Simulated assay, not measured.
Amino acid sequence: MTITQLHYVLAVAEYQNFTKAAQKVFVTQPTLSMQIQKLEDELEIQIFDRSKKPIELTEVGKKIVYQAKNIVNESDRIKDIVDQQKGFIGGEFRLGIIPTVMPTLLPMFLTNFIKKYPKVKLKIEELHTEAIIEKLQEGHLDAAIAATPLEFENIKERVLYYEPFVAYTPPGHRLAKEDKIKAEELEVDDILLLEDGHCFKEGILNICKADKNVESSSFQLESGSFETLIKLSNEGLGMTLLPYLHTLDINEREAKNLRMFEEPSPAREVSLIYHKSELKMQIIQALQDIIAGVVRGAIAFQNVKIISPIHK
Protein backbone atom coordinates (compact mmCIF):
# COMPACT_ATOMS: atom_id res chain seq x y z
CA MET A 1 0.00 0.00 0.00
CA THR A 2 1.35 3.44 -0.93
CA ILE A 3 0.37 7.07 -0.37
CA THR A 4 0.15 7.42 -4.15
CA GLN A 5 -2.44 4.65 -4.35
CA LEU A 6 -4.49 6.37 -1.65
CA HIS A 7 -4.33 9.63 -3.63
CA TYR A 8 -5.74 7.74 -6.62
CA VAL A 9 -8.53 6.21 -4.53
CA LEU A 10 -9.54 9.64 -3.21
CA ALA A 11 -9.58 11.09 -6.73
CA VAL A 12 -11.90 8.34 -8.03
CA ALA A 13 -14.12 8.69 -4.95
CA GLU A 14 -14.44 12.42 -5.62
CA TYR A 15 -15.05 12.31 -9.38
CA GLN A 16 -16.78 8.88 -9.56
CA ASN A 17 -15.01 8.37 -12.86
CA PHE A 18 -11.60 6.80 -13.58
CA THR A 19 -10.83 9.03 -16.58
CA LYS A 20 -11.59 12.31 -14.77
CA ALA A 21 -9.71 11.11 -11.69
CA ALA A 22 -6.65 10.27 -13.79
CA GLN A 23 -6.67 13.76 -15.28
CA LYS A 24 -6.90 15.22 -11.78
CA VAL A 25 -3.79 13.38 -10.54
CA PHE A 26 -1.89 13.78 -13.86
CA VAL A 27 -1.50 10.10 -14.79
CA THR A 28 -2.95 7.96 -17.56
CA GLN A 29 -6.22 6.19 -16.89
CA PRO A 30 -4.66 2.70 -17.27
CA THR A 31 -1.96 3.58 -14.71
CA LEU A 32 -4.54 4.81 -12.19
CA SER A 33 -6.79 1.77 -12.73
CA MET A 34 -3.86 -0.62 -12.39
CA GLN A 35 -2.71 0.90 -9.09
CA ILE A 36 -6.19 0.83 -7.58
CA GLN A 37 -6.67 -2.77 -8.72
CA LYS A 38 -3.31 -3.63 -7.16
CA LEU A 39 -4.43 -2.11 -3.85
CA GLU A 40 -7.75 -3.96 -3.96
CA ASP A 41 -5.92 -7.24 -4.65
CA GLU A 42 -3.59 -6.63 -1.73
CA LEU A 43 -6.50 -5.91 0.64
CA GLU A 44 -8.64 -8.64 -0.91
CA ILE A 45 -11.69 -6.37 -1.15
CA GLN A 46 -13.45 -4.15 -3.69
CA ILE A 47 -13.21 -0.42 -2.97
CA PHE A 48 -15.39 0.58 -5.92
CA ASP A 49 -18.51 -0.93 -7.44
CA ARG A 50 -17.63 -0.56 -11.13
CA SER A 51 -20.99 -1.92 -12.27
CA LYS A 52 -22.70 1.30 -11.18
CA LYS A 53 -22.80 4.44 -13.36
CA PRO A 54 -21.39 6.65 -11.99
CA ILE A 55 -18.97 4.48 -10.03
CA GLU A 56 -19.90 4.07 -6.36
CA LEU A 57 -17.95 3.17 -3.23
CA THR A 58 -18.67 -0.16 -1.61
CA GLU A 59 -19.48 -0.14 2.10
CA VAL A 60 -15.91 -1.08 3.02
CA GLY A 61 -14.72 1.39 0.39
CA LYS A 62 -16.43 4.23 2.27
CA LYS A 63 -14.49 3.33 5.42
CA ILE A 64 -11.24 3.11 3.48
CA VAL A 65 -11.79 6.53 1.89
CA TYR A 66 -12.47 8.07 5.31
CA GLN A 67 -9.19 6.69 6.65
CA ALA A 68 -7.31 7.50 3.42
CA LYS A 69 -8.22 11.18 3.76
CA ASN A 70 -6.62 11.28 7.21
CA ILE A 71 -3.50 9.45 6.04
CA VAL A 72 -3.00 11.59 2.93
CA ASN A 73 -3.60 14.84 4.83
CA GLU A 74 -1.12 13.87 7.52
CA SER A 75 1.49 12.80 4.96
CA ASP A 76 1.10 16.15 3.17
CA ARG A 77 1.82 17.92 6.44
CA ILE A 78 5.30 16.44 6.72
CA LYS A 79 6.50 18.91 4.07
CA ASP A 80 4.65 21.69 5.90
CA ILE A 81 6.55 20.85 9.09
CA VAL A 82 9.87 21.00 7.24
CA ASP A 83 8.92 24.31 5.57
CA GLN A 84 8.01 25.80 8.95
CA GLN A 85 11.31 24.67 10.45
CA LYS A 86 13.24 26.29 7.59
CA GLY A 87 11.09 29.45 7.67
CA PHE A 88 10.22 28.84 4.01
CA ILE A 89 7.14 30.70 2.72
CA GLY A 90 6.15 29.09 -0.53
CA GLY A 91 4.26 26.29 -2.25
CA GLU A 92 0.59 25.93 -3.15
CA PHE A 93 -1.95 27.63 -0.89
CA ARG A 94 -5.69 27.25 -1.51
CA LEU A 95 -7.72 30.25 -0.34
CA GLY A 96 -11.50 30.69 -0.39
CA ILE A 97 -13.14 34.12 -0.20
CA ILE A 98 -16.83 34.94 0.21
CA PRO A 99 -18.45 36.90 -2.69
CA THR A 100 -19.20 40.06 -0.68
CA VAL A 101 -15.52 40.39 0.28
CA MET A 102 -13.73 39.20 -2.88
CA PRO A 103 -14.25 42.21 -5.22
CA THR A 104 -13.19 44.85 -2.70
CA LEU A 105 -10.52 43.16 -0.56
CA LEU A 106 -8.68 41.02 -3.13
CA PRO A 107 -7.46 43.95 -5.30
CA MET A 108 -6.25 45.69 -2.14
CA PHE A 109 -3.78 42.99 -1.07
CA LEU A 110 -3.12 40.54 -3.93
CA THR A 111 -0.40 42.50 -5.78
CA ASN A 112 1.44 43.27 -2.54
CA PHE A 113 1.31 39.64 -1.46
CA ILE A 114 2.55 38.29 -4.80
CA LYS A 115 5.46 40.73 -4.84
CA LYS A 116 6.51 39.98 -1.27
CA TYR A 117 6.00 36.20 -1.45
CA PRO A 118 6.66 35.16 -5.07
CA LYS A 119 7.22 31.50 -4.11
CA VAL A 120 3.64 31.11 -2.85
CA LYS A 121 1.25 29.80 -5.50
CA LEU A 122 -2.14 31.16 -4.45
CA LYS A 123 -5.19 29.29 -5.75
CA ILE A 124 -8.21 31.49 -4.98
CA GLU A 125 -11.87 30.47 -5.13
CA GLU A 126 -14.97 32.61 -4.62
CA LEU A 127 -17.30 30.56 -2.42
CA HIS A 128 -20.24 31.02 -0.08
CA THR A 129 -19.56 30.38 3.61
CA GLU A 130 -21.28 26.98 3.62
CA ALA A 131 -19.05 25.70 0.80
CA ILE A 132 -15.96 27.19 2.48
CA ILE A 133 -16.62 25.33 5.73
CA GLU A 134 -17.21 22.07 3.85
CA LYS A 135 -13.95 22.45 1.89
CA LEU A 136 -11.96 23.37 5.00
CA GLN A 137 -13.34 20.28 6.78
CA GLU A 138 -12.44 18.04 3.83
CA GLY A 139 -8.96 19.51 3.38
CA HIS A 140 -9.70 21.06 -0.04
CA LEU A 141 -8.87 24.58 1.24
CA ASP A 142 -5.97 25.76 3.39
CA ALA A 143 -7.73 28.91 4.61
CA ALA A 144 -10.53 31.32 3.76
CA ILE A 145 -11.67 34.88 4.30
CA ALA A 146 -15.22 35.04 5.63
CA ALA A 147 -17.58 36.90 7.93
CA THR A 148 -17.35 35.67 11.51
CA PRO A 149 -17.91 34.58 14.22
CA LEU A 150 -18.88 31.11 13.04
CA GLU A 151 -19.89 28.30 15.35
CA PHE A 152 -17.44 25.52 14.49
CA GLU A 153 -15.13 24.06 17.14
CA ASN A 154 -12.52 22.83 14.66
CA ILE A 155 -12.30 26.11 12.70
CA LYS A 156 -9.88 28.77 13.94
CA GLU A 157 -10.57 32.46 13.31
CA ARG A 158 -8.13 35.38 13.07
CA VAL A 159 -9.92 38.73 12.89
CA LEU A 160 -8.68 40.94 10.03
CA TYR A 161 -11.00 43.95 10.38
CA TYR A 162 -14.45 45.19 11.33
CA GLU A 163 -16.49 46.55 8.42
CA PRO A 164 -19.56 48.70 9.13
CA PHE A 165 -22.85 48.33 7.26
CA VAL A 166 -23.72 51.50 5.31
CA ALA A 167 -27.24 52.46 4.24
CA TYR A 168 -27.95 53.49 0.65
CA THR A 169 -31.06 55.70 0.63
CA PRO A 170 -32.05 57.28 -2.72
CA PRO A 171 -33.74 60.73 -2.90
CA GLY A 172 -37.35 60.57 -1.78
CA HIS A 173 -36.78 57.63 0.58
CA ARG A 174 -38.18 58.13 4.10
CA LEU A 175 -34.63 57.99 5.58
CA ALA A 176 -32.92 60.08 2.90
CA LYS A 177 -32.92 63.28 5.00
CA GLU A 178 -31.36 61.61 8.06
CA ASP A 179 -27.71 62.44 8.77
CA LYS A 180 -27.25 59.12 10.55
CA ILE A 181 -29.59 56.14 10.72
CA LYS A 182 -30.69 54.13 13.74
CA ALA A 183 -30.86 50.36 13.32
CA GLU A 184 -34.38 50.31 14.75
CA GLU A 185 -35.55 52.59 11.90
CA LEU A 186 -34.94 49.86 9.34
CA GLU A 187 -37.89 47.94 7.91
CA VAL A 188 -36.83 44.69 6.30
CA ASP A 189 -39.57 44.72 3.63
CA ASP A 190 -38.19 48.09 2.48
CA ILE A 191 -34.63 46.73 1.98
CA LEU A 192 -33.36 45.21 -1.25
CA LEU A 193 -31.42 42.09 -0.25
CA LEU A 194 -28.76 39.83 -1.70
CA GLU A 195 -29.96 36.37 -2.72
CA ASP A 196 -29.93 33.38 -0.36
CA GLY A 197 -26.50 31.96 0.43
CA HIS A 198 -24.89 35.33 1.14
CA CYS A 199 -24.03 35.76 4.82
CA PHE A 200 -24.34 39.55 4.28
CA LYS A 201 -28.08 39.01 3.82
CA GLU A 202 -28.20 37.06 7.07
CA GLY A 203 -26.45 39.96 8.80
CA ILE A 204 -29.09 42.43 7.54
CA LEU A 205 -31.88 40.18 8.79
CA ASN A 206 -30.13 40.05 12.17
CA ILE A 207 -29.88 43.87 12.30
CA CYS A 208 -33.60 44.09 11.57
CA LYS A 209 -34.38 41.15 13.89
CA ALA A 210 -36.45 39.83 11.01
CA ASP A 211 -37.66 36.37 10.11
CA LYS A 212 -35.57 34.63 7.44
CA ASN A 213 -38.63 33.94 5.29
CA VAL A 214 -39.92 37.53 5.29
CA GLU A 215 -41.91 38.51 2.19
CA SER A 216 -42.50 41.99 0.82
CA SER A 217 -46.11 43.20 0.65
CA SER A 218 -45.66 44.44 -2.94
CA PHE A 219 -42.86 42.40 -4.48
CA GLN A 220 -39.90 40.26 -3.52
CA LEU A 221 -36.53 40.70 -5.18
CA GLU A 222 -33.09 39.36 -4.36
CA SER A 223 -29.90 39.92 -6.35
CA GLY A 224 -26.39 38.50 -6.44
CA SER A 225 -24.63 41.87 -6.77
CA PHE A 226 -24.51 45.16 -4.91
CA GLU A 227 -24.38 47.04 -8.24
CA THR A 228 -27.81 45.69 -9.17
CA LEU A 229 -29.22 46.58 -5.75
CA ILE A 230 -27.94 50.16 -6.09
CA LYS A 231 -29.50 50.54 -9.55
CA LEU A 232 -32.85 49.20 -8.33
CA SER A 233 -32.66 51.49 -5.33
CA ASN A 234 -32.08 54.44 -7.67
CA GLU A 235 -35.32 53.46 -9.43
CA GLY A 236 -37.20 54.01 -6.18
CA LEU A 237 -37.74 50.34 -5.33
CA GLY A 238 -36.33 50.63 -1.81
CA MET A 239 -33.10 51.17 0.09
CA THR A 240 -30.25 48.71 0.53
CA LEU A 241 -27.28 48.12 2.82
CA LEU A 242 -23.67 47.89 1.63
CA PRO A 243 -20.37 46.85 3.23
CA TYR A 244 -18.19 49.90 3.90
CA LEU A 245 -15.34 48.92 1.55
CA HIS A 246 -17.79 48.65 -1.33
CA THR A 247 -18.84 52.29 -0.82
CA LEU A 248 -15.29 53.52 -1.53
CA ASP A 249 -15.78 52.83 -5.26
CA ILE A 250 -19.20 54.48 -5.61
CA ASN A 251 -19.35 57.52 -7.90
CA GLU A 252 -19.74 61.02 -6.47
CA ARG A 253 -23.42 61.33 -7.37
CA GLU A 254 -24.42 58.06 -5.71
CA ALA A 255 -22.15 58.70 -2.72
CA LYS A 256 -24.60 61.43 -1.68
CA ASN A 257 -27.13 58.68 -0.96
CA LEU A 258 -24.92 56.93 1.62
CA ARG A 259 -25.83 57.15 5.30
CA MET A 260 -23.78 55.84 8.22
CA PHE A 261 -25.45 54.34 11.30
CA GLU A 262 -25.38 55.90 14.73
CA GLU A 263 -22.66 54.44 16.94
CA PRO A 264 -22.12 51.73 17.82
CA SER A 265 -22.39 51.06 14.08
CA PRO A 266 -23.62 47.60 13.09
CA ALA A 267 -20.62 45.92 11.46
CA ARG A 268 -19.44 42.57 10.21
CA GLU A 269 -16.30 40.91 11.48
CA VAL A 270 -14.11 39.67 8.62
CA SER A 271 -11.58 36.99 9.52
CA LEU A 272 -8.99 34.63 8.11
CA ILE A 273 -10.27 31.17 9.00
CA TYR A 274 -8.61 27.74 8.80
CA HIS A 275 -8.91 24.20 10.16
CA LYS A 276 -7.36 23.68 13.57
CA SER A 277 -5.04 21.01 12.09
CA GLU A 278 -3.69 23.37 9.40
CA LEU A 279 0.12 23.56 9.41
CA LYS A 280 0.84 26.19 6.75
CA MET A 281 0.87 28.78 9.50
CA GLN A 282 3.74 30.75 7.99
CA ILE A 283 1.60 31.54 4.93
CA ILE A 284 -1.47 32.28 7.07
CA GLN A 285 0.59 34.72 9.12
CA ALA A 286 1.96 36.34 5.95
CA LEU A 287 -1.58 36.79 4.58
CA GLN A 288 -2.79 38.26 7.86
CA ASP A 289 0.09 40.76 8.00
CA ILE A 290 -0.33 41.91 4.39
CA ILE A 291 -4.13 42.29 4.64
CA ALA A 292 -3.98 44.06 8.00
CA GLY A 293 -1.45 46.49 6.55
CA VAL A 294 -3.56 47.53 3.57
CA VAL A 295 -6.93 47.57 5.36
CA ARG A 296 -5.69 49.59 8.32
CA GLY A 297 -5.61 52.71 6.17
CA ALA A 298 -9.08 52.14 4.70
CA ILE A 299 -11.05 51.19 7.83
CA ALA A 300 -10.52 52.99 11.12
CA PHE A 301 -13.81 52.26 12.91
CA GLN A 302 -13.65 51.20 16.55
CA ASN A 303 -17.09 51.81 18.09
CA VAL A 304 -18.97 49.04 16.32
CA LYS A 305 -21.47 46.31 17.19
CA ILE A 306 -20.61 42.99 15.55
CA ILE A 307 -23.55 41.44 13.70
CA SER A 308 -23.52 37.66 13.40
CA PRO A 309 -23.37 36.19 9.86
CA ILE A 310 -25.51 33.28 11.12
CA HIS A 311 -29.23 34.06 11.11
CA LYS A 312 -30.58 33.91 14.64
Rank of each mutant, 00 (worst) to 15 (best):
T2W: 00
L10A: 06
V12K: 05
A13D: 06
A13V: 06
Q16V: 02
F18Y: 15
T19R: 14
K20C: 01
A22P: 06
Q29L: 12
P30R: 12
T31A: 11
Q35W: 06
Q37K: 13
E44H: 01
E56L: 07
I64Y: 07
Q67D: 13
I71M: 11
V72D: 07
N73R: 13
V82W: 08
D83M: 14
F88M: 12
I89W: 07
L95I: 06
I98Q: 05
P99M: 05
V101R: 05
M102Q: 07
P103E: 08
T104I: 01
F109R: 12
K119G: 05
K121Y: 13
A147C: 09
L150F: 05
E157G: 04
V159H: 05
Y162T: 11
A167M: 15
Y168H: 03
P170Q: 11
L175M: 11
L175N: 05
K177F: 08
E178L: 14
K180I: 11
I181S: 04
K182A: 11
A183E: 14
H198Y: 14
C199L: 04
C199Y: 02
F200L: 08
F200N: 00
A210Y: 06
E215R: 14
E222P: 00
S225W: 05
L229K: 03
L232D: 02
L232C: 03
N234T: 01
G236E: 04
T247L: 06
N251D: 11
E254I: 00
P264R: 08
V270Q: 09
L272H: 07
S277H: 14
I283Y: 10
I283G: 10
D289S: 15
P309L: 02
I310V: 15
